[in-house]
Design a protein around this nucleic acid. Sequence first.
DNA 1: GGAATACTGAACCATATGGTTCAGTATTAG
DNA 2: CTAATACTGAACCATATGGTTCAGTATTCC
Lengths: 118, 118
Amino acid sequence: MVQYSSPILDLSFAALSDATRRGIIDQLGRGAASITGLAERFQMTLTGMKKHVAILERAGLVVTHKAGRVRTCTLGERGLAAEAEWIEAHRMLFEARFGALDDIINELQREVRDGSAG
Amino acid sequence: MVQYSSPILDLSFAALSDATRRGIIDQLGRGAASITGLAERFQMTLTGMKKHVAILERAGLVVTHKAGRVRTCTLGERGLAAEAEWIEAHRMLFEARFGALDDIINELQREVRDGSAG
DNA sequence: GGAATACTGAACCATATGGTTCAGTATTAG
DNA sequence: CTAATACTGAACCATATGGTTCAGTATTCC
């Protein structure tokens, strides 16, 4: 079996797969915000927004701090380094695939070896 | 309301949020593979593997071609450009936050020290 | 033709999202 | 103390994942 487990990437790519959450990151890049502020900006109930923030927080992309009644959300310190690293490494894979097309064709012919033409 | 919709990023970040699917991309970077080949390598039923491949395909990350009985999977030509672009743009946001942190802290300390707004 | 191979689809199950409402709790303002 | 504000948690609903099994269909091999 092959193990490619990476809880951080699992959680953070999942967190980034929603447009609202990408918008929240965008917004927090312009300054800290409360749950209420984010909920208003994204036209959503407080409860709904809190769930999004919880998902971002679990992924380490957002940090929150409650002072009095107000929970303030900011971008996490972790940043997007792990995600960028994976993406960049695999961009090269994608590009290498088109560079190394001959090898791939050979591999294909060896594996399939059915001479299927059309 | 704010619109941050981007079906491509939705689908591809979601596709990348699973370790098995990241492994499949890894594997396809080393050469094309059949559903059966991938299913064996990742210890999974054909049906299960086909679902993963379908999710990668829907995101444009993988392309498949059926010749005879065999469906061959390869990396999609689209690559990871859109994902890389989003990540890089927002890495800067994250870093800008912490670059500006000194300023923010100074500002806060100044306000506290001066006892702003009695 | 008949059997093995490779995939496919439907159905099922458990869990997670993405959202809601409703009923609280804690904090701040008067 | 009272009231408003800001959040929180439980419960609910629909849909998507992540996996399975079981029953096909299409191809290839003998």
